[in-house]
Design a protein around this nucleic acid. Structure first.
Length: 156
DNA sequence: GCCAACGTTGGC
DNA sequence: GCCAACGTTGGC
């Protein structure tokens, strides 16, 4: 099993939105970046765990855990001209964009903030913390995963 | 609202 | 294939 981190703006889609969905499942669509597409299409497997990260939030940070519920399949929002993520170059016969479905697992008592992550020596190499990183999906190592879980627990 | 970082686009 | 222009991301 692998670990991931997925970013979302909570005013667009938050962990509470996910928890309130029927079956607590939601398709992660609208991603229009090839690196993120490749991870969803090729690498993310059912049962993989996901840190749910709120960006453009005060403060930004990890708010809980989700899991991959359905593995990569075509993102049909790319075919819909009415959709804000419409891409005329995505052909239904050869889809350009993919999504996974994610399922809610748990919400932290307290957000593990970006500042807390940056203060951890064990997390200096964490992909999401790399300077200038804008990828909305990044891999997380097992070591990083348990370090963040510890931070979530330690918080009073 | 600002702006640094970075991906994408398109002219050449 | 280069690179300037442009758009987006996301912290601050």
């Amino acid at each position: 099993m692998r670990y991931w981190l997925m970013k979302t703006e909570p005013n667009e889609f938050s962990i509470d939105d996910l928890a309130n969905r029927p079956n607590q499942v939601e398709p992660w669509d609208g991603v229009r970046n090839y690196q993120a597409r490749n991870m969803m299409r090729d690498e993310m497997k059912r049962g993989d765990r996901i840190f749910f990260y709120h960006s453009n939030s005060r403060p930004p940070g990890i708010v809980g855990i989700a899991e991959v519920y359905r593995e990569g399949y075509p993102d049909t929002t790319a075919f819909n001209p009415e959709d804000r993520h419409y891409d005329s170059k995505s052909d239904p016969d050869a889809p350009r964009w993919f999504r996974v479905d994610v399922r809610f697992v748990s919400k932290f008592q307290h957000k593990v903030t970006l500042d807390m992550l940056r203060a951890q020596p064990d997390l200096v190499d964490m992909a999401v913390l790399r300077r200038g990183n804008r990828l909305s999906i990044t891999p997380v190592t097992e070591r990083e995963w348990s370090c963040v879980l510890k931070l979530a627990d330690e918080r009073p």
